[in-house]
């Protein structure tokens, strides 16, 4: 999903809300959206950047760490066996300036995460966007603007 589409979805979601709630949701969307990918300290050769995959599950752990944040999410496979996936996101300094906090994604949260999978087949990838059950889209953030 392109960042433009996600922004559009975000606008639809927030269209009927009060101004205050809208600002909060937009802030959260920009924030989580910033979790797109890693900082420049590594290349993306490890990821299948041409393709995305979506998994749905329950947050097991959130690492609010450098150089990348890590979302650990429990996902049931086709056989019903629960497996833990590690999804790599942007760094705390990048995310904090876009309204995220270490509590934006909490243990126990239900999320559908879109990501670029690891080429080596390990259960992991590079965060692109996420969606909560209530429809709130945590999308990619546009290029850095005021911060």
């Amino acid at each position: 999903m392109s960042s433009r589409n996600i922004e559009s979805n975000l606008q639809k979601v927030t269209m009927n809300m009060t101004a205050t709630v809208r600002q909060m949701i937009i802030a959260a969307g920009l924030a989580v959206g910033g979790a797109s990918l890693a900082l420049a300290h590594h290349s993306y050769s490890a990821f299948e950047m041409a393709g995305t995959r979506v998994i749905t599950g329950t947050i097991k752990k959130m690492d609010w760490t450098n150089p990348h944040t890590w979302i650990w999410i429990d996902v049931a496979n086709e056989q019903g066996v629960v497996e833990t996936w590690g999804i790599e996101g942007m760094s705390p300094n990048y995310l904090e300036r876009r309204g995220w906090s270490r509590n934006t994604i909490k243990v126990g949260d239900k999320l559908s995460i879109t990501f670029h999978p690891l080429k080596n087949g390990d259960k992991g990838g590079s965060f692109q966007s996420a969606q909560r059950p209530n429809g709130e889209v945590l999308g990619m953030t546009p290029p850095i603007s005021d911060k």
């Binding site: 960042s3 959206g33 910033g34 797109s36 990918l37 890693a38 900082l39 420049a40 290349s43 993306y44 050769s45 990821f47 950047m49 942007m90 990048y94 590079s126 990619m140 953030t141 546009p142 290029p143 850095i144």
Partner: peptide, 8 residues
């Protein structure tokens, strides 16, 4: 390099 949303 491969494209990301990170400003480069």
């Amino acid at each position: 390099v491969q494209c990301t949303e990170l400003p480069l």
